[in-house]
């Protein structure tokens, strides 16, 4: 989160806002300290029901939408990293992220509709993932599971989270959020197996970045 604060400060434009939404059923206990460590001045939301992901048809974090002054989305659904990250060493090392997103974002804030990174409504509408009735039902099941979890009814929480994952197997958010309840956590062996499978089968873990600087 510090990275968005740095970018927000560097852009320093009163007509630009960042809404950072933690997709975190663990609520304030899970996401609050991470926000606090970044000392942010942008809008901070802890979105326990993953409402932002559901509303924009995102399947993974970090994902983002750029919304212009008229309320129109001008870019959407890209792996929203500000740089290339390297994690781990040797065979277990992975790299992810991109160096082209941050300059593109700054160009848009500075140049608005004239920015070459602004996409037409037709392009954006085409880039928004379709969200089938089953996937929408998955969102409802996920929220139901969250309600039970927040009331300490873990068996029903698990039941409806499982329903959500079954109805929307493309949701990395659902899979990894669920793994936070496992012993190995959200980035352990199961996650790596899932990620390897996504890569092997060409499944869309993130929509490929389509930015030229």
């Amino acid at each position: 989160m510090p990275v968005w604060q740095r970018i927000y400060e560097e852009i320093n434009n009163p007509d630009f806002v960042i809404i950072c939404a933690a997709q975190d059923t663990g609520g304030e206990a899970a996401a609050g300290p991470i926000f606090d460590a970044a000392n942010p001045t942008y809008i901070q939301v802890i979105d326990e029901d993953h409402l932002v992901s559901s509303s924009f048809n995102f399947v993974n974090v970090p994902s983002a939408a750029w919304i212009d002054e008229e309320g129109r989305i001008v870019r959407i659904d890209e792996g929203t990293y500000s740089k290339v990250h390297e994690l781990g060493v040797g065979d277990q090392s992975i790299s992810f992220g991109t160096n082209v997103y941050e300059p593109a974002l700054k160009d848009w804030v500075a140049n608005g509709a004239q920015s070459k990174h602004v996409q037409s409504a037709t392009t954006v509408a085409g880039n928004i993932r379709q969200h089938s009735a089953e996937q929408q039902r998955a969102d409802a099941a996920f929220c139901l599971g969250n309600l039970f979890r927040k009331h300490g009814i873990d068996d029903k929480a698990e039941q409806y989270w499982d329903m959500a994952k079954a109805l929307n197997p493309d949701s990395v958010n659902f899979i990894r959020q669920n793994l936070t309840l496992s012993e190995e956590g959200s980035a352990g062996e199961q996650f790596r197996a899932m990620r390897d499978n996504f890569e092997r089968t060409g499944t869309d873990y993130y929509r490929p970045i389509d930015i030229e600087n």
Partner: peptide, 28 residues
């Protein structure tokens, strides 16, 4: 409509006139 950490309701519709980046992340 979202509620921020200060308890303020944030409506995307109220942000008209500004550019907005809405970005997700997670602790996990």
């Amino acid at each position: 409509e979202l509620t921020d950490r200060n308890g303020q309701v944030v409506r995307l519709a109220d942000l008209k006139g500004k550019k907005a980046l809405i970005v997700t992340w997670s602790s996990w």
